[in-house]
Design a protein around this nucleic acid. Sequence first.
DNA 1: AAACCCCTCAACCGCTGTGTC
DNA 2: GGACACAGCGGTTGAGGGGTT
Length: 253
Amino acid sequence: MVRAPCCEKMGLKRGPWTAEEDMTLVAHIEQHGHSNWRALPKQAGLLRCGKSCRLRWINYLRPDIKRGNFTSEEEDAIIQLHAMLGNRWSTIAARLPGRTDNEIKNVWHTHLKKRLESSSKPSGQAAPKRKAKKPAVAASALEGPTSEPASSPGQSLSISPEQSLSTSSATGYSMASSLENTGCSYSESEEFQIDDSFWSETLAMSVDSSGSGMETGDTFGADSVSPSSRNNEMDFWVTLFMQAGDMQSLSQI
DNA sequence: AAACCCCTCAACCGCTGTGTC
DNA sequence: GGACACAGCGGTTGAGGGGTT
């Protein structure tokens, strides 16, 4: 199937968004919602493709976007979630309220990846120096709900203490180490090697833990996964690994 | 002060997944 | 079941700006 390229039509604007465009998009979405991204720019009178509008809204204009530097807590969470999930930025973003997948992806590639690489080197080289984050250009142009302080007091990581995701480790990758303790070996290639005892113990525990809301039969047996269950499935894996970490720590007592 | 280098991040591109007919 | 339309995701790019020489 040959797809029509995005913004194929001549005259569709590309590049950075202006404050006027932002306001038009926000006003239209607040009034009509965004049930149909493809039709939205036409309805709103924007010379943009729907894809561009969606990206702008998701990554920048959404009222619940948290702007500003990532806290060390958030960075640790990203590192640990990335160790578990890989480059599933949207899944990681879902666990960091107010943060977008694009933002997390950028932070990973610019800061966290380098930090991990440098910390993994035996010579113990210092992490690359970081410059102060420059102010967002368009954000300053659009004053309003999006220009929220970096760390709003009401917001917190969606990772609860019950999920045993330690954010106290400043060095990161504590989850990776806990995975190693449970029979999984974590390598740079992000491949988990899991022995049979791990699965038997962990799955047995998953069945026992009725509060987790996981249905192992659906997850492992179904050939097709419905869209609504995709997040649940990912939650399952996250919880599974976390429980595995808990299990190991319990066995050490 | 100017030139260059490097970093950041908004935005784009191409692909995949899902729903509908 | 196939074709199509659309939404969403992840990889990549490049402009802009700050830091360094």
